[in-house]
Design a protein around this nucleic acid. Structure first.
Length: 795
RNA sequence: GCCGAAGUGGCGGAACUGGUAGACGCGCCGGACUCAAAAUCCGGUUCCCGCAAGGGAGUGAGGGUUCGAUUCCCUCCUUCGGCACCA
């Protein structure tokens, strides 16, 4: 008996597909011939190391969708590329030893070879990589458009600075506030850095989530990340300075309970206060130490700390003079960097008040009504929020305001392996954009690229020196590179026109394919990449560069592949290398099993026994189909149990892949059909139909095996074969199993003709001896009949 | 602390709209083939009582709605994920 040989079969069909250029997508079809488009994208991988199981899962999900949609008449674009710039690739180079360019390109070619072995229907003719000048030229071009539109800007932002080594330190290089290299106390230094104005779209990013077909949990994560809070901005006057200071609060109803006032150590007013304060030395010391701490250190502090400034602010509702403190528990980058402290109704303020023995005045009672609040006493807190702000607004002391947790995206990196920011600094003209016709600004080849604290590009003196585009005098290039998330914010647009040397993309192509219909990737990219890409799409739409405002209609988040209950990782040593599994069992087995373990959006545990079970299924399918091909009669299949099962399978698999995206149950459905076919034997033409159906339905998962069997059944090119549809008339059953319950408990079940009238069903049910025993002569109070399902007697 | 998701056999999971809980697979048990093994095939497999027929219990716990609840509602427990000194 011939046994299925995965290796020769897979190689054979991969060659056939390649020769036929099967997965190249033509997008220049004339108007009338255009079929409905579908754009299927999986997150492009970092080219670090080799292909891993996580990749197998993501790209197989996308591949099943691609092959299914393609056979259903869609024109499907399913491209691939590499996120080859940035920290992951650079760290891989440091780990693997070598220059990032070499390690990156070696990894890309290895991973690409593995991808071809997996049989994924990817259009390799469109392959792009972020580190190629032909790609990052357009990063630079897009940056310049955003810069012109004031959506990219420079501002001073705090970095960790070692005063001894005179370098910027990464967060990880700071230990307990001290420099990793020399041990000196780290300071905060304000350096000019690049930002994208993501906050300009905060509200739209929030609102448009409603339009997207994303998992609930993913939308929730983005909502929390954007973190919209409704409240008010209120002005407190500082008489001694003659200045107003604004605070943001969500609880204006508690204004009468504000007994002190706190500024973040980074607040712009702090410098002036310090200068004029009687406690100047203490203030300076406190601010310096707070600045050196990492955010987590400040957040993790066990006790509240702070220093009194000696100044007072006027509470606008009652004229009370409240002391102004500086404390690190107030953050500069949320709200206004200053708060009114209401210790009676805020835990943090209360803790602070108790530490420094400041007064605590309750202004809301147990019934949620105001007390100690002058004319607002008795008002419900919710009403008071509005009333107090409206009242203060009359004198210009308050306004309703909304605050977001979302911050502008700081995208400059002091690393080597990234896209150069096309800016030249001129003494006279400041930051000047490199003209479009001088793009790309090519990343110079540097031997010593490892992070040192100063940007590695600064060493490339020849490269750094460049004439100012405005005046031609000596200038210096920006030496920081772009965050790799810039590359991934628009790559799905580049796929649509990947070889264009004149533009990042042609509008009609990008508008035709976009938005991405199904985007697959890890949840871990929800709050960064997925926000940035959405921001880019909105900004590019406002700039007239693209016709859409949302990049991803559907976002399918895949689970983690685990081994023994924990996520596979090299450091834990619990990694299964896909290449080895392919060597042993073939790619189809991996593809089938990874989707059969469980729902693809949930974490799954890989087992050796599991994949062996899948291999058994494939061998069984092969054997029975070969038997059918050789022995089953041809002709019109009888309408029998087997042919009906085949039609049911078509209906289920179509629904499972097409609508529910329940990839594991679709495989189960095919297994059921194969089981039934095995039992039914090959004597009837319906066996041929059942076999063809099983092969056709398993094709999106196991394309090599399916193609081979399709050929043996006397056909060709299954990948182009129209996806079948179930024949409704063949799905109709002549009878059904009637379930009879007494008081909701199943007491009997038997076959009944489909058209049996309700009264007759009841009569048949009552006649059953088993039911009779349970009715036990009692009076039937109620009889429920569910057509084609059951009869329930209530006694 | 806030927000979200999930708890079903020995294991992964299925049950889509309130209607037969446990599909499909793994594992295990028994059998066939074989000198034997592997491979393959056949049968069984939620738990408890029973030789069996059959009966009882059962979807994290407790309550509710309903003729009927894994599914809807309330309370609680556990696990996982996100955010977190966000005013």
């Amino acid at each position: 008996m011939e046994r299925y040989d995965a290796h020769t079969t897979e190689a054979k069909w991969q060659r056939v597909w390649e020769d036929a250029d099967a997965f190249r997508v033509v997008d220049a079809l004339p108007e009338g011939e255009r079929s409905e488009k579908s754009y299927v994208v999986e997150m492009w991988p970092y080219p670090s190391g080799t292909l891993h199981m996580g990749h197998c899962l993501v790209y197989t999900i996308g591949d099943v969708i691609t092959r299914f949609r393609s056979r259903n008449g869609w024109s499907v674009l399913h491209p691939i590329g590499f996120d080859s710039f940035g920290l992951p690739a650079e760290n891989a180079a440091i780990r693997e030893g070598g220059h990032p360019r070499e390690t990156t390109e070696r990894n890309i070619s290895n991973i690409t070879r593995s991808m071809r072995r997996m049989g994924w229907a990817l259009d390799f003719s469109r392959m792009i990589s972020a580190h190629e000048p032909t790609y990052y030229k357009w990063d630079q071009w897009l940056f310049l458009r955003l810069y012109e539109a004031d959506l990219a800007y420079r501002k001073a932002a705090p970095v960790k600075w070692c005063p001894v080594d005179q370098v910027v330190l990464a967060n990880e290089q700071v230990h307990d506030g001290h420099c990793e290299y020399c041990g000196a106390e780290v300071e905060a230094k304000y350096l000019e850095q690049w930002f994208f104005r993501t906050t300009a779209y905060a509200q739209e990013l929030l609102d448009d989530l409603d339009k997207l077909d994303w998992f609930h949990k993913v939308k929730t994560m983005q909502r929390n990340w954007i973190g919209r809070s409704e409240g008010a901005e209120i002005l407190f006057h500082v008489d001694q300075l003659g200045e107003d200071v604004s605070v943001f609060t969500t609880r204006p109803d508690t204004l009468y309970g504000a007994t002190f006032f706190v500024l973040a150590p980074e607040h712009p007013l702090v410098a002036e206060l310090t200068e004029r304060s009687p406690h100047a030395d203490a203030l300076r010391d406190y601010v310096r130490r707070a600045a050196a701490k990492r955010g987590e250190e400040r957040a993790g502090a066990e006790e509240k700390t702070g220093v009194f400034t000696g100044f007072y602010a006027t509470n606008p509702v009652n004229g009370a003079q409240v002391p102004i403190w500086i404390a690190e528990y107030v953050l500069m980058d949320y709200g206004t960097g200053a708060i009114m402290a209401v210790p009676a109704h805020d835990e943090r303020d209360e803790e602070f008040a108790r530490t420094f023995e400041l007064p605590i005045v309750p202004v809301i009672d147990e019934d949620d009504r105001l007390v100690n609040s002058a004319q607002f006493d008795g008002l419900p807190a919710d009403d008071a929020k509005r009333a107090i702000v409206d009242w203060l607004a009359e004198s210009g002391r308050a306004k309703h305001a909304i605050s977001y947790r979302l911050r502008d995206w700081g995208f400059s990196r002091q690393r080597y392996w990234g896209c150069p920011i096309p800016i030249i600094y001129c003494e006279e003209h400041g930051a000047v954009a490199v003209p479009d016709d001088e793009l790309p600004v090519v990343l110079p080849y540097i031997e010593d690229f490892k992070p040192r604290g100063i940007a590695p590009l600064a060493q490339a003196e020849d490269w750094v020196r460049a004439p100012c585009p405005t005046c031609g005098k000596d200038g210096r290039r920006e030496v920081e590179t772009m965050d790799t998330f810039v590359d991934s914010s628009w790559y799905f647009l580049r796929y649509c026109d990947p070889h264009n040397t004149e533009q990042p993309w042609r509008r009609e192509l990008a508008d035709f394919w976009n938005p991405v219909d199904v985007y697959t990737g890890g949840v871990d990219h929800t709050t960064m990449h997925m926000i940035y890409a959405r921001f880019f799409m909105k900004a590019l739409n406002d700039l007239g560069l693209i016709g859409h405002r949302e990049p991803f209609v559907q976002f399918f988040t895949n689970g983690w592949v685990q081994l023994g209950g924990t996520k596979m990782s090299k450091s834990k040593g619990n990694v299964i290398a896909p290449e080895e599994i392919i060597d042993r069992y073939g790619a189809d087995a991996v593809r089938l099993y990874i989707l059969f373990i469980g729902p693809a959006d949930q974490d799954m545990d890989w087992t050796e026994e599991g994949i062996e079970g899948m291999v058994r299924f494939m061998r069984r399918l092969f054997r029975i189909v070969v038997d059918v091909a050789e022995n089953a009669p041809r002709g019109e299949p009888a309408v029998n149990a087997l042919s009906r099962k085949a039609h049911e399978t078509i209906a289920r698999v179509t629904d499972d892949i097409g609508r529910r995206q329940s990839f594991n149950t679709a495989i189960s459905a095919v297994m059921e059909l194969v089981n039934e076919l095995s039992h039914a034997g090959v004597s009837d033409p319906s066996a041929r139909f059942a076999a063809e159906t099983a092969v056709s339905m398993i094709q999106p998962y196991a394309p090599h095996l399916a193609e081979e069997l399709w050929e043996r059944l006397g056909h060709s090119r299954l990948w182009m074969e129209r996806w079948p549809s179930a024949d409704e008339s063949q799905l109709a059953r002549a009878s059904f199993e009637l379930v009879v319950q007494v008081n909701g408990k199943v007491r009997d079940r038997f076959e009944v003709a489909i058209d049996t009238a309700e009264e007759e069903l009841v009569a048949l049910a009552k006649a059953s001896p088993r039911v009779h025993a349970h009715l036990n002569g009692a009076t039937v109070r109620k009889t429920i009949v569910v057509p084609h399902k059951l009869v329930n007697f209530v006694v």
